[in-house]
Simulated scan of single mutants.
Amino acid sequence: MSRSRRSAAGGIALAAAALLAVAVPTSVSAAPAPVPSAALPASTASTYYASAEGRTGTALKAALNDIISEQNRLSYSQVWDALGDTDEDPYDPDNVILLYSGRSQSKSEHGGNLGDWNREHVWAKSHGDFGTRTGPGTDLHHLRPTDVRVNSIRGNKDFDNGGSAVSGAPGNYTDGDSFEPRDAVKGDVARMILYMAVRYEGEDGFADLEPNDRVGNGSAPYHGRISVLKQWHREDPPDSFERNRNEVIYNEYQRNRNPFIDRPEWVEAIW
């Protein structure tokens, strides 16, 4: 075959392949892609965290408090709809992912009945007695959708390793004064607790929230155990779901961020 005839045949084959690629649809049974990572762009990070760069210890904590205290605030009733966005199931936009159980559940099935999901305060609202008031009581950075029954079992317990298995929430454990979440969200829990400790420093009429290395803190404005939380933070670094959640809160609701999702190294720099 001459070179010209080979070229013509090749052109026809390429055209047929292109036509076939257009004509054959993508399989409808294909699984949707995971939520993309929503890490803070370097250009934004350099601006948002500029005053904190190069600091450590109490100076870093104070600088971050100044940065993240600039935020919009929600009412407690607004939290229902907001959680539908922040914790949306990436494979089913009608559902949310429940924090402790990991179950995907309809956004509309929320309330106080058995089987519903409700608004879990990861920093227990009795630890500092802020309740559901606008401020720490409505801060999306530590509010998560949780099965009503599991929320009740967790109650206001501090976080620690060990205990008996929680029925209906595989991988979670509890005893009389502590709660251990499933491995996939251990780091999430740690970063939410440490965010609260930086954001609420006794300003705005609320208690100064601080982590400590105890359990059974009751109504005191402390949450433990810091040594375990730091371990969880190291072992379960931020994933795409958590980073996307941080982005949604920043862009669509509060206009502030959890710095320990963006800059995990700052946990050790402060504590």
Rank of each mutant, 00 (worst) to 15 (best):
T138Y: 02
D116V: 02
A169P: 00
W232Y: 09
S106K: 05
Q78I: 03
V35A: 15
E210S: 10
A197S: 14
E242P: 06
Q78D: 12
N258M: 01
S69K: 12
H141P: 06
Q254Y: 05
G84K: 00
A33W: 01
T174S: 13
W232T: 00
G10F: 14
V198D: 00
L194T: 13
R182L: 10
S75K: 13
N244T: 08
D213G: 00
Y200D: 00
N251K: 13
P238Y: 04
P136S: 09
D236R: 02
P145V: 05
P25M: 05
D116L: 06
Q71F: 06
V215A: 05
A165Y: 14
W123I: 07
D87C: 07
G128A: 04
W266F: 05
S178C: 08
R245I: 03
E247K: 15
D204S: 09
M196L: 08
P238W: 02
P93V: 05
L209P: 00
A13I: 11
D158Q: 03
V24I: 15
Q105F: 08
I249W: 04
N251Y: 12
A23I: 11
V248P: 02
V79I: 03
L83H: 10
D158C: 02
E203L: 13
E268I: 04
D139P: 02
S51C: 12
T132C: 07
D147Y: 07
W80Y: 11
V198G: 00
S167G: 13
V96N: 07
E180K: 11
R6F: 04
D158W: 05
Q105Y: 03
R3T: 09
Y200H: 08
S104P: 06
I270E: 01
S43F: 10
N172D: 01
L60I: 01
A169S: 04
P181N: 03
E120P: 07
R191D: 01
D129M: 12
R257Y: 01
E88R: 12
N172G: 03
F130H: 02
R191T: 00
Y173E: 04
P238T: 07
T174L: 08
D139C: 10
A38C: 15
R214T: 06
D139T: 05
Q231E: 15
E88F: 02
E210D: 10
R214M: 09
S227D: 13
